[in-house]
Design a binder for these strands. Structure first.
Lengths: 194, 194
DNA sequence: GGGCACATGTAAGCTGTTACATGATTAA
DNA sequence: TTAATCATGTAACAGCTTACATGTGCCC
């Protein structure tokens, strides 16, 4: 799947739930898909215009002045299924924390531990947000089970991040301790003034 | 940290290991950081030129004609530590598999299961690659322990992906079974011709 | 001599964000 | 009345990939 069609997929998917304005598409993506997807207005409005030109969506006057409601057409439905069936080609990896960690000896273990703690806190916070999201899903709705699976993916990922962070922090504490042992080895064993 | 400095961080980090050519920087990032970072030539060469103009790296003639070896300067070292200490600001989430999963009722549970299987296979393959990477690290080297932590992060993440995929596949099988039950309910219990 | 690894660079293009400009409607 | 929300769009810019152009050195 061409990378460019990912916004198409998100927008067509949103319109498959119900016809709505561009503004509502954005709000829906932020609120409902927020933990694994994002789109900005700068993407959404041009995308809607292009999809309309391609006959994938139909534009109708909205209730308010200057507002338009977009609805999925038949060929838009076909296009949506095409995009859904296409395998997800992974983007090149770019993990800023691991990049910093790899060059950790330059920065020092203590500073690295601080960065890892920040990441751990974020994962804990995400777990709490996911619990809220989970509670808001109605499992009897048609896409309820699918929504629950996306929440579950986030939870697995967050728990793994926490477990790793704990492991990493333990290792980093040891590295700090070793450093202390090395620098204090030649000093008297009794406590000096701080 | 401005997003734009992430390539700077990767390049300066590479040069903190040893002075090398742009080509070697790219190869090093691909081979050593490959499981969590990537850079293309289109980023590396302009970045090196800019870092040289800023006085962060020094360019010297390499052994081959037309080749240059870049080395970290003192101010480059300072810049590297600055970038390393800056917290990693997370990029907006974009998970193509979860996007597809969320709209799974449009595609059907069986097709979704196929997509999840592909993801599971990828995670299994990654785990194998990480085992190789782990074996190649010398833990007595100064950055050995840090490199091991990056491998460990990959392993945690891959194992979580596999566990989630197994859970998801089990749920999807049930959804398929429910669908079959509903569609066969009104047919005779005895086997019809296929 | 042919192919591969080494080596440098640029141009075009795509994806995406941010900030801005503009204005109507509604709830406090 | 005034602030928040609803609503549409664009322009500028940032980041990144791909493909191309170009050439050297080394090994089979």
């Amino acid at each position: 799947m061409a990378r460019g069609s990912r916004t198409d997929l998100a927008v067509l998917g949103a319109l498959s739930i119900a016809p709505m304005t561009g503004y509502a598409v954005r709000a829906g993506i932020q609120d409902v898909l927020g933990h694994f997807w994002s789109e900005s207005y700068g993407q959404i409005y041009p995308t809607l215009a292009r999809l309309e030109a391609d006959g994938c969506v139909e534009r109708r006057a909205g209730e308010r002045p200057r507002s338009s409601v977009y609805a999925l057409t038949d060929s838009g439905g076909v296009r949506l299924r095409e995009l859904l069936a296409a395998p997800d080609e992974p983007t090149p990896p770019r993990n800023g924390l691991l990049l910093r960690l790899f060059f950790g000896h330059v920065l020092g273990a203590e500073e690295v531990a601080r960065l890892v703690s920040v990441q751990r806190d974020r994962a804990v916070a995400q777990l709490a947000e996911l619990a809220v999201a989970r509670a808001e899903i109605d499992p009897s709705e048609e896409h309820g089970p699918f929504a629950l699976l996306t929440v579950s993916a986030g939870e697995h990922s967050a728990r793994a991040a926490i477990a790793w962070a704990d492991e990493a922090l333990a290792v980093l504490v040891e590295i700090v301790a070793d450093g202390d042992r090395l620098t204090t080895r030649h000093r008297p064993a009794s406590a000096d003034a701080p």
